[in-house]
Write a protein that binds this DNA or RNA. Structure first.
Lengths: 339, 339
DNA sequence: ATGAAAGCGCTAACAG
DNA sequence: CTGTTAGCGCTTTCAT
């Protein structure tokens, strides 16, 4: 039932001006030690809490960082990246607010706009798989809100991005499959609107090509959980007259589903079909057989992206700071499912 | 580089007053169709976006709901609950901002205070496992910010809570173990600061008692990942002279780790030792053997908690609305690991 | 070192 | 239906 006190209240009680209180509270050098003491004491006595809305409105800046990710759950990657973001944000005195786009374009637009309107200091986005238009992002930037993309980027607009070397990661694991002697490698790719799908697909194809394999008969299924889910895709693969002896899935999440489906069809991994994923989700270590995958530096992506965003927020010359593309390395994890 | 326009800008251009613009934008009935048209047109022409800070400051309310959860990842439960929260929030025009306490008390306090200071309309909290003092929550309520606890509650303060029937869930799965003929059931409990640990522990003990079992020699290990992690706990159990023939873990997360450890020690589940978890995490269906567990209505918890919070936010008589304790039912999932 | 005054961008009586 | 006038609670010149 407590009244909510303002600087006014404490100014009155101390018989000084609002301005002085405001300064004292922010530890402004122009305030005497004694006044500061008095103010702080009174503040804690009244349990004063600064109204951040008012503060931000007046000072025209906030300590909020908005994060928009496709989904918070299921993908261990985002959770990890988020931790990285939060670590850095905290160190620099920012609070992060997280929004989910649920992989929906319209929802992403909504969230971004809501964040901009809430006058966040900056925004970190990992694009939804439906996103193929970037006006909302452009718009945010135009409205002086720095934006940094992480993990899922685009070349269509000028913007800082912190990504993973998806191409190389896919290339390496495909190559590993080839080295292991698998002759007929299928690829379950993701929606091609996603940069990561494209790059992983390309890495896959190039690895085949470079090994002198025909890429024309490489069996690729685009699997986006809408028109085609992993379960169905697996069935199709199993139904092929020339059944692949290895499957490279563009994500661990897919790989897990495929594994489940293979098992329930009595197909042995890796004896009958080898299986590889992408992400480095901890679950790949738990399933049987353990899944080979491409480990991503998820936490570090978050860290780098947040650091860059904060730099863009705090610079006084955005113009000459420009944009960066940072590509982080992956790490091939060879496990039971491909050996 | 775009200038950021305000209602003032559009008022000037249209030669009307700010108030009318403000009203038109909010679709106030007192504004003529034509003016509304003009205003909206001009607004979109200038790409006007309302400054929510100013709006909220003036109207003294926000459309933000803060959520504080121990951790966003790893526990599928929270992700699910969050989805439920977001669904309801969206339906009612609220935006949710999510904060992690990382299971740390101090971090929880920080997050709650930050949310209150940002003048969120209300807060949903699932307590950290370190939390045993509730001043920060009391404080938020005192400052007119409704708070609802979900999943992890407490009886120490008067507050609305949406919980799961942990006691009954634990009782039932323990009973199932007993029915299956397991004679020596161990329990890996969680930190006793957590209401859910206590209730699950009690459910376990009572089930034994009611079956006429001696509870004094029931082997219970309190396992909080700090003083004792699941791996170590498993080793201890395996080292027992009178080795248990079943283990009931207070969480699926624990159960998975135990399972891993049992396997790596060549112990067969359920032949040598049966294993059960709690939560209904999808991972329990993926591991081998599939884990018996107690399914929680995670999404629904989120839904109910959010609904209640919004009710408390929007009521004009908080006093007589009072608090509620809502206990949702669980569902026993019997699978391979206990049969 | 402190105060007075203006204003951030919006909403909300109150008039008319 | 529209305009005028005050604020919301804080920051920020500009004086003193």
């Amino acid at each position: 039932m407590g009244k909510v006190y303002t600087i006014h209240d404490i100014a009155i009680r101390l018989n000084i001006s609002k301005s002085t209180v405001s300064r004292a509270l922010r530890n402004h050098p122009d305030v005497s030690k004694e006044t500061k003491m008095l103010v702080h004491d009174m503040a804690s006595k009244l349990n004063y809490q600064k109204n951040i809305l008012a503060s931000n409105l007046a000072s025209k800046n906030t300590n909020l960082i908005g994060v928009v990710i496709p989904e918070i759950a299921r993908q261990h990657f985002f959770a990890q990246a988020l931790s990285g973001i939060q670590k850095v944000a905290k160190e620099h005195g920012y609070i992060v607010m997280v929004c989910q786009s649920n992989e929906e374009f319209l929802e992403e637009i909504n969230q971004v706009n809501a964040l901009v309107n809430s006058r966040v200091a900056g925004i970190l986005i990992s694009l939804s798989k439906e996103t193929n238009d970037y006006k909302h992002i452009q718009n945010a930037q135009d409205r002086q809100t720095p934006v940094v993309l992480f993990d899922r980027g685009t070349d269509k607009i000028e913007i800082s991005q912190v990504l993973v070397d998806d191409y190389k990661g896919a290339y390496e694991i495909t190559n590993h499959l080839i080295q292991q002697g698998y002759k007929n490698i299928a690829h379950l790719s993701g929606p091609m609107s996603l940069s990561i799908s494209q790059k992983r697909y390309k890495g896959f194809m190039d690895a085949l090509k470079d090994a002198g394999r025909s890429t024309t008969d490489a069996y690729v299924l685009q699997c986006d959980n809408l028109s085609l889910d992993a379960k169905e895709a697996t069935e199709r693969i199993l139904g092929l007259k020339k059944r692949p002896d290895a499957i490279f899935c563009m994500s661990d999440y897919m790989a897990i589903q495929v594994l489940k489906e293979l098992k329930s069809n009595g197909v042995k991994v890796p004896e009958d079909i080898a299986l590889a994923g992408f992400a480095g989700d901890p679950i790949t270590e738990i399933v049987e057989p353990q899944l080979s995958t491409v480990e991503q530096p998820a936490f570090d992506i978050g860290v780098q992206a947040a650091k860059r965003l904060i730099m863009e927020i705090e610079t006084d010359d955005r113009e000459t700071l420009g944009f960066i593309h940072k590509i982080l390395n992956t790490n091939l994890l060879v496990r039971e499912s491909t050996t």
